[in-house]
Amino acid sequence: MTGELFFKVVMGTIGMAIFAILLGLSFKGIDRKIAAHMQSRVGPPLRQPFWDVGKLLIKDSVVPKNAVSWLFNFAPVICLASSITLLLYIPIAGYGPLLQGHGDLILILYLLTIPALSMVAGGFASGSPYATVGAQREMVTMMSYEFPLAVAAISIAWKMSDAFKGDVFTLSFISSHPIWNNVGLLGIIGLLFLLLAVVIILPAELSKIPFDVAEAETEIAGGLLVEYSGRNLALFYLADGVKTFALSSLVVAIFFPYNISQFFALGSIPAFIIDFLFFLLKVSLVMLFAVTLVRVGVARLRITQVVSTYWIAVTLMALLGLVLLMWDSQILTIRWW
């Protein structure tokens, strides 16, 4: 049994890695194309990210003289690997995650910090003042968005545990019991607040404008990534694509776990294809609203503004969502009793 599980996990991970990299890069291409159209440019072809990675792979990979070379080379690998690991815990297209039953929402909250932490480690290891500044900024950003994110995740899990018995903390449970169906009016308003909070947190998780203070090209020359070139930079580039895909599908799994195949009378394979395409559509919509529109529409914030945005505005929003969800179940209970 363990041998079989081991085989399944290894093959699944390899498959998922290829799948995630392909999709992550395609989504990056879509993102750039839409951003270009919004600025009334033609924009790069959809395949552009693939060319970029191919080019980076044939470039020299320079390790600066005063860098800690093993950490410097190790950080990109960890960043990509942890982004792919994240995806192993997230349900794709209504199907349970690969490592179903081995981890829950709380584990995902922890896994989410690893790509960012490895970038911080790589930044500190590269021995450049710009990278150090970038790494410190990344840590500050992490500290500021972690709390509202935890509040949002816990509120949803709490609401689920209130409504159901079972493994309420696992994502496959949450995604197979759409949360919107189990709350009243107050709860829906609360969920909207939580959704908004999570959508505002996404750009910071992904270091995108307006929260990309850690990678600000114009102020600190690329920040964390300033010393990276060639293969290492390509790994970070891939990790960014995979992370974007993973986080968008996390939002889809929690907030929009609906499938459309039950509306058509189809065999299992066409149903899977339809669900999968619908899933990709949902993921790209999340990405469009959380990343692309925001990225084109606004300018970069200063680091202090990032902190106050998250600690005051977004935290309040998440707490309000939590309170509304609580009231929702209490009012429902009162009425029923």
């Binding site: 750039r32 270009a36 600025q39 009334s40 440019r41 033609v42 924009g43 790069p44 072809p45 552009q48 060319w51 970029d52 080019k55 470039k59 320079v62 710009y130 090209e217 114009t218 020359a221 690329g222 990534l225 300033v226 010393e227 990276y228 070139s229 930079l233």
Partner: peptide, 21 residues
């Protein structure tokens, strides 16, 4: 700028010489 838009050829301005070709 949108008028010439070199990004459509994949040309991009980067912030660090380490990333540049």
């Amino acid at each position: 700028t949108p008028r010439y838009d070199v990004e459509r050829f994949g040309i991009k301005l980067v912030g660090s010489p380490r990333h540049a070709d």
